[in-house]
Design a protein around this nucleic acid. Sequence first.
DNA 1: CGGCTTTGACCAGCGC
DNA 2: GCGCTGGTCAAAGCCG
Length: 173
Amino acid sequence: MNDAETNLARSFSDDTHSGFEFPELDLSDEWMDDDLVSAVSGMNQSYGYQTSDVAAALFSGSSSSFSHPESQRTNASVAATATASANNQNKKEKKKVKERVAFKTRSEVEVLDDGFKWRKYGKKMVKNSPHPRNYYKCSVDSCPVKKRVERDRDDPSFVITTYEGSHNHSSMN
DNA sequence: CGGCTTTGACCAGCGC
DNA sequence: GCGCTGGTCAAAGCCG
């Protein structure tokens, strides 16, 4: 386990789960079954998010190559995992798990500007967290990308963002 | 007036 | 089969 993974594991270890999982995101098996493409540690934080960098890197499928020079001086812990699961019916082929990317950012606000425009379509209280989870869709027509955003259960200063799918267009900046 | 958020309802999957 | 939980829909309201 590299530093990022260790960090991640520590961050997400939970009383109901042990190990490297995202208990609050219901990402357990399928998430881990697939290849853990990458765990990225380090990224700008505060409110000048450079999330677009991460997002772009991840969406382009080269998450493992994400290494921003700036990310050296970081205080945010960002972990990313991409699940490209087209066909892993080796196990039990759950649902259509597309491409999922989750990362945890230290931020006060949950709507990080990642270069895309999002339309909120739902909000839910989740069981293991006192904080609601918000659901967003990319507002670009015919773009299937969704994301959900929630705060870390025991460290509300962190925001967990999970992207699902990949954009069929470039960012709208 | 158009686009977005809000919010409750609805639905589907899963475990018991 | 039932209840719980997570995910989505859609009507209504808000805001620029």
